[in-house]
Design a protein around this nucleic acid. Sequence first.
DNA 1: AATTAGCACTCTTGCCACGAGACTGCTAGC
DNA 2: GCTAGCAGTCTCGTGGCAAGAGTGCTAATT
Lengths: 357, 357
Amino acid sequence: MKLSERKEKIIEAVVDTYIKECTPISSGDIQKSYLQDVSSATIRNELAVLEDMGYLVQPHTSSGRIPTAEAYRHYVEKLMPKRKLTKDELKIVNKYFNRKITELDEILKATAKVITQITNLTSVAYIKNAKEAFIESVKIVKLSANQALFVVVTNIGVIKDAVAHIESGDIGEEYFVRASEFITSVLRGKSVFEAATNMALYEAVLAEYQFIFDATMHILKSHANEAVLPDIVLEGSARILEQPEYANLNKAKAMLELLDAKEELVPVLAGSDMSLNILISKDDELKEGLPECAIVTANYSVGGKSIGKAGVIGPIRMDYSKVISVLDYISKAINLMPNSERTNESDSEDIIGEVID
Amino acid sequence: MKLSERKEKIIEAVVDTYIKECTPISSGDIQKSYLQDVSSATIRNELAVLEDMGYLVQPHTSSGRIPTAEAYRHYVEKLMPKRKLTKDELKIVNKYFNRKITELDEILKATAKVITQITNLTSVAYIKNAKEAFIESVKIVKLSANQALFVVVTNIGVIKDAVAHIESGDIGEEYFVRASEFITSVLRGKSVFEAATNMALYEAVLAEYQFIFDATMHILKSHANEAVLPDIVLEGSARILEQPEYANLNKAKAMLELLDAKEELVPVLAGSDMSLNILISKDDELKEGLPECAIVTANYSVGGKSIGKAGVIGPIRMDYSKVISVLDYISKAINLMPNSERTNESDSEDIIGEVID
DNA sequence: AATTAGCACTCTTGCCACGAGACTGCTAGC
DNA sequence: GCTAGCAGTCTCGTGGCAAGAGTGCTAATT
């Protein structure tokens, strides 16, 4: 079904204006700013048709129109202007990313911070569950008589937060070095998930290393398990209240509760895996627990390896054009980041900026 | 200045009732439930006096009284009933802590979750900055040709999130084992802060280990630095909106912004170091950025070592008695936790419960 | 001197009515 | 197919009004 050029223009006018003003748009408004060459009566006729088609609604009989989710989808797909970041916005992004960041966590936090700062929306960023990462090596370090640190190096980073209780008594450190080498030889090249579930591996293990291998598997299993939630970071939750659609306390609460239970956002975010994902909740999705909102996320990679996603969560009435340009630019900035998360020493030049004046 | 018994009783009545109802308390209310043996007129006289003394205020001329921050302080210090947890509440706490928890982080999160679940308030938990911890040993592990993991074991736990970029090329792993031993011998017994700032240590280092020692110092410095914020976890931010005092959108926003910038809460929390801290913001502290609220925190230790604090943040009108009993009990539960954070294997019996029926 | 009964006064809250303003829908004419 | 014009509808802010809650004060009582 194709819309006439004038209808497109009207949808654009309504969405554009509504994004800025958050008030119903009247036929007169459209005529003044978008369609001077026809009368408001004509526009009124068109508006009635578009309402029948499901693109617009009237809050009440004698008010202007506001866009439906359908209109937003159409807007994002066909009508939305492409924009670039302003100099100031670029400055903000570069300030955050044109420096040494040693930890994946830090990237996560910085990403969320930048997005919120530029878009004034609540942002969300998360790092993928490690279960699909490939194991490169395993190192086990004796820390004390009853603690050992297990380090699993994978292609997307280091699973390093695993201090395990090991009654190693007076076993020497060389033992751990040898054990590390042996276990690495068994697991190298396997995905975390594969390693954690492949029972056949157990049989290949020498008795000498059995207990330490068991501990390794224990850690891998916890990471392969869906129950281990990926790191997720929210920034600017309070910004949600700046949006007039959540001026109503109940709506604000529904939204904040969603943000509070941020772990529950993961399946929503993880859903699609396109480089850019736009999720606009339908009115009837309200019942499924998601309050009326839109979530726009982009995939991020460091050094060519996809590490997770980041984006914004806000009212359906959001400045998609701006949001998308920000996400897009940040994605590039992260990929170009000085030596990615492994750097600690090297300096680097500026990110290539797409500047507008 | 001592208050008459009747005045105490009236303050208690007003605070108690206000905590439950959040509506101004009239002389009649007090007479009915707290002081049947005098008339409401007498109570009115007393109320007027207590208002002059600064314990109560009237929202408007013909309404009941509500307590001032002063009244709450008095209540908490002198009047508050001591209570114990109910069976259900104990069950919740035990469910969270009577199990193996391997990571300090997990304790943090569990603590915050439990507190929120029982008190219905926003909770906050944080782990102290490591700068005062004493170094027990340092281990350096070669992960790849240009990465090494630095593990600093201290008396309060392991500083392990330090993957550093090290151009170690084909230096063998034994070198790192030796370097670890050497560096441990130099730093053992020093506090993180002391180690990071004591330049004299540098001179004692053999040239052979210089570059790896420098990297270690780099990590210690980042932990000794105040700029490295301790981990802080919030739980249940949305609960703040359930409190009628934040029904006003602006107040809700002020509060949520405070929670959003959770790092800024650290100095507030770190302030006093008693086992129990109660901070009730004065009206005039509003200007200093802290919205009207109360923060109650307790110190927590694992195996006798103080690790951080946890507590609640909410309206001044909160159920202090309940909050304090919860914090107190959790503090015990953590300390008795099966082998603290180092356990991974051992089972254990139930925590000793203080049960009421 | 402390307490109390009684009453006038004050302030809030909910309700209703009213008018202004903003748009639309529709009709009739171009 | 477009437009001018107008009647009709709905929102929103305002003001008045009555009911209700609670106080402060005064005068009487113990």
